[in-house]
Every structure is written in structure tokens, then in C-alpha cells.
Amino acid sequence: MSEGAESMALRWFPAMERRSRAPAEDADVLARVADGNAAALGELYERYSRPLFAFLFRLAGDRGTAEEILQDTLLAVWRSAGTYRSRSSVSTWLFGVARRQAHNRLRGLPPPLPAEPPDGAAPEPGPEELAVSGDRVQQALARLPLAQREVVVLAYLSDLGHPEIAEILGIPVGTVKSRLHHARATLRGCIDARVD
């Protein structure tokens, strides 16, 4: 597969919309959650449920499981909001909580079967993405080890930078780059094998 085709294939994972809110505003909302304000938890849900759900769906491969993990995440946020210490952005902290909840739920389960993106979770793919065939990419993604899959999902679906991914996963930036490199090679091999 050419580098351009690989790039088009990886763009099939729609990027999370950039939020224009100031990080201080998110921190204020999280502080209100820590004080027991249920409406503030609702605000966080409105802001982050879509990107968190998309991340969890790609990790779990199943809509129902992703919804359950999202609910577990919200409960964990409700219980642990007071532990947030502003060492990272609120969004990075939320992705970290979601990732831990996903690992707790998915531990010991076999890799997910390929799944179609849920309605409303992502914009429709454009002509470039359709030309590369999203089904093949999704099937290849499901074959990745969880450590590589979560890096790919955070980088290409959630549009997070290497430092943010490293913080969420608790690994060095170099390891993020290495996992992305290996994941791209695996995805390329899976997609090329299907083309032959």
C-alpha cells in the first residue's frame, strides 16, 4: 500500500472536533462535580460523551459494551473528581479514566469482532475513505493488540497528540511513536493481504 493510501485509510477514523473552551472552564466544571454538583457532571457528559464513546467503541468493538463502559466512566468521574490535580487537561484525564474502565471491563476478553461505527458517532466517510474501504480498515484495527489499537484510536479518532496519548496511557512519548509505527505496519499488512 502506498504512503498516500495508508494516510487515506487512517483518515477513515474521523477526528474529534476541537473544543474551543478554555481548559480552565473544564477544570471549573470538574471542580463542581467534585463538590457533588450533578448538573456539572451533565455538562461534562455533554462535552465529552461523543469522543469518549467513539474511543470506547473502537476499543470494545461493541456498542452495548462501549455504552456500559461510558457509564462506568461517568460513575468513576463522579467518585474521583476530587483527585484531579490539574497536571493534565481535563480531557486527557477523562480519557485516562475511560481507558482504565475499558481495561477493567475488557480484561481477559478476546479481541472484538469488527464492528460498524454507531449511528451519529462519526460523520459519513468521504469519497477518499470509501475508496479505501472502511470495512477492511475496521477489520484490520480489530486484529491489533489492545496496546496498539488504543494508540491508533487516540491518535486518529480522537486527534490527540503524542504527548497527550503518552499521558493518558502512562507511557513515554517514544513508546507512543513505536506503537503507532508497529500498528501502521500491521494495518498495512492486513489491508494489503485483503487486496491481493
Rank of each mutant, 00 (worst) to 15 (best):
P123L: 00
V77S: 00
M1Q: 10
R21W: 15
V151W: 01
T83M: 03
V137N: 04
A39L: 09
L41H: 01
A185P: 04
S91Y: 12
L187K: 00
E3T: 12
Q139C: 13
S91G: 13
D119C: 15
D196N: 15
L109R: 14
S86I: 06
Q139E: 14
E25C: 03
R63S: 04
R63C: 07
A115R: 06
P127N: 08
V90W: 12
Y156P: 14
V29N: 08
A40T: 12
G82F: 09
M1E: 11
V77Y: 00
G64F: 06
A122N: 00
L106H: 02
V132C: 11
R63D: 05
A15T: 06
G64T: 03
S80I: 08
L187D: 01
H182T: 08
L94Y: 00
E129G: 03
S2L: 12
R18I: 14
P172Q: 08
M16T: 01
G96F: 02
L56P: 13
P110H: 05
A147V: 07
I168S: 04
R136H: 13
P172S: 10
E46P: 09
L41Q: 05
S80M: 14
E6A: 15
S178K: 13
K177C: 03
V90S: 10
L109K: 12
L70M: 03
P110Y: 05
P125I: 01
G174W: 06
P172G: 10
R188W: 06
S91H: 11
P125V: 00
E6V: 15
G170E: 02
R149I: 06
S7M: 15
A142L: 05
Q139D: 13
L144C: 07
H182W: 09
L56G: 12
R179Q: 13
I165A: 01
M1Y: 09
T83Y: 02
R11F: 06
A34I: 07
V90A: 07
E3W: 12
D28A: 13
L130N: 12
D159H: 07
E46I: 11
P112N: 01
A54D: 04
S86V: 09
E150V: 07
L157Q: 15
S91M: 13
V137K: 04
S2K: 13
L52Q: 07
R32L: 10
L10M: 04
I165R: 00
R188G: 06
A15W: 03
V151Y: 04
